[in-house]
């Protein structure tokens, strides 16, 4: 049996890092680039956080696939990666 990762930490990290609050007016599938929330430093910080917190190593091909664009897509990606690692 595998445990789902606690991806709420990602939400808290993004809220703290980018001074936003996810709610009905700012849903989790918001494109953080298009909304002007994500900047270069913050994006790299987020990337480092995910690597450290969930033990994920990002490959270059992952990064050209628009995976770190919204909280929803990041949650899905982290869940998938950790599940794949547990299964291997």
């Amino acid at each position: 049996m595998t445990m789902s990762p606690d991806t709420d930490k990602i939400r808290r990290f993004i809220e703290d890092q980018f001074l936003v609050e996810f709610d009905a007016s700012f849903p989790e599938d918001t494109d953080l680039f298009r909304e002007g929330v994500m900047d270069s430093f913050g994006y790299v910080q987020l990337h480092r956080f995910l690597e450290a917190e969930y033990g994920i190593t990002f490959a270059l091909e992952d990064m050209t696939g628009n995976v770190l664009v919204s909280l929803a897509s990041i949650r899905a990606y982290v869940t998938e990666k950790t599940a794949a690692r547990a299964a291997s």
Partner: peptide
């Protein structure tokens, strides 16, 4: 050390 992240950024 952050080349994967900057690659993702530049892709955007």
């Amino acid at each position: 050390q952050d080349v994967a992240a900057t690659t993702g950024l530049y892709q955007q």
